[in-house]
Design a protein around this nucleic acid. Structure first.
Lengths: 225, 225
DNA sequence: AATCCTCATCTTGTATACAAGAAGTCTGAT
DNA sequence: ATCAGACTTCTTGTATACAAGATGAGGATT
């Protein structure tokens, strides 16, 4: 059965990614090609392609002749990732504030409203999703295709950890309030303020860092069973 | 002939990359898999893997069922890329200034000296190479594996354009003088200065932008023949 | 004559076969 | 009994075979 529907490799990649995010594939664990192939009902070829894509994203490590292993991110690595993300998001915010069009304002505003609804309903999964849309709307407002692309890639890479962050008590409400300040800054055209607000929103500092590490460890322990 | 030496795909990838950088494969041109396979004396499999890696880096576009085409970067796209690079390099410089160890200082200093030698000898290719080493030394000095990785990836992606930049008259000497200011700032532990110097060094603004666009167009025209 | 449909060919996407390196195991020697 | 070396097996890396979508040409119809 060849050329089944359109892209088997994408499907395999997404499924592996989900398994990684959900923690089914534990850090430092080996990923066997034939095992994955039989599991997803495809041959080794698309599996290998998917693994290479995941390796390019940095979710797994591909050692030559040694196979693929799930990379283990310690607290320091997680902090580093959010630090870089904060820098890029800050740049995106500054650009968005300067280059905002009516459409941009509209889409950001809509996404912000949906975040508000999810936050008030204490809908964790809903907020997780709408939060992504909010940030993507800001990326689009930069009118820099490359910056938007880079931000999107990093955003995606940090997805599993962001999901953890939201589990911290009261983080959801605090996140929305930060969104509000970000939106205000961007809409007022204040590039410097937008940059600062977004950096502060994204970076994981002080208490938030400890909270995230704790949530991460807890998730790992839960998985270890 | 299978499993020849160690990694055929890497060799193929580098060769395709070289052909892209040198302009042999013109923008918007199609890359035929079997053609590349016969040219490099391998099968289609490693060629496909190499193409996917290049697609992940952004050097080519892989349209489903339509093959690979060389992406065409306009002046605006090039500017956007250097803008993002400048932001990340600035962050790297700030970290390097704060976290510099004796080894870091040594490796940066050594790389800087080699840049000086190449600049004084007006050795374009030599400077091109040593310049990379200089920047990589700074990435290492950040002691942030993720930031270093991101900077390295972007640096690599911008390689072809940086090569063009150096062709601009006097750019080599100016570049070295900027390196000198960057080095001073980092060695003095002044994070803010290091960030500013590196941003200024990397970003392509004003005259330099025009120069780069001109060099780029010239290279494209030369290739069109 | 122009346009649309069909068919042939070309190219990509997937599967399978094959070869070589790596890791673990078993045996023999000290 | 322990350690070292060779062998076996397992897994990755590469090649080739096969299938399906896409493109282009040619013919038929309006």
């Amino acid at each position: 059965m060849s050329g089944m529907s359109e892209n088997a490799v994408r499907k395999v990649r997404d499924q592996i990614e989900d398994a990684l995010v959900s923690g089914e594939f534990a850090p430092n664990g080996r990923l066997d090609e034939v095992q994955l192939a039989t599991r997803f009902g495809v041959s080794r070829t698309p599996v290998r392609e998917a693994l290479m894509q995941l390796s390019a994203i940095g979710m797994i490590e591909l050692r030559p002749r040694r196979g693929a292993i799930v990379v283990a991110h310690g607290p320091a690595q997680i902090y580093e990732m959010f630090e870089v993300m904060a820098e890029l998001e800050g740049l995106a915010g500054a650009h968005a504030a300067r280059r905002l069009t009516d459409e941009d304002r509209n889409s950001i505003s809509k996404a912000h409203d949906r975040c508000r609804a999810a936050a008030e309903a204490a809908d964790l999964d809903g907020y997780y999703y709408e939060n992504e849309a909010f940030h993507v709307a800001i990326y689009a407002a930069t009118h820099s295709g490359f910056l938007a692309e880079q931000c999107g890639a990093l955003h995606r890479r940090l997805r599993p950890f962001r999901r953890l962050q939201l589990r911290v008590p009261n983080r959801l409400k605090a996140s929305f309030e930060e969104h509000d300040r970000v939106t205000t800054a961007i809409f007022s055209g204040d590039a410097e303020a937008a940059k600062a607000r977004l950096r502060a929103h994204v970076i994981v500092q002080g208490d938030r860092f400890g909270d995230l590490v704790a949530a991460y460890e807890q998730a790992r322990l839960r998985q270890a069973v």
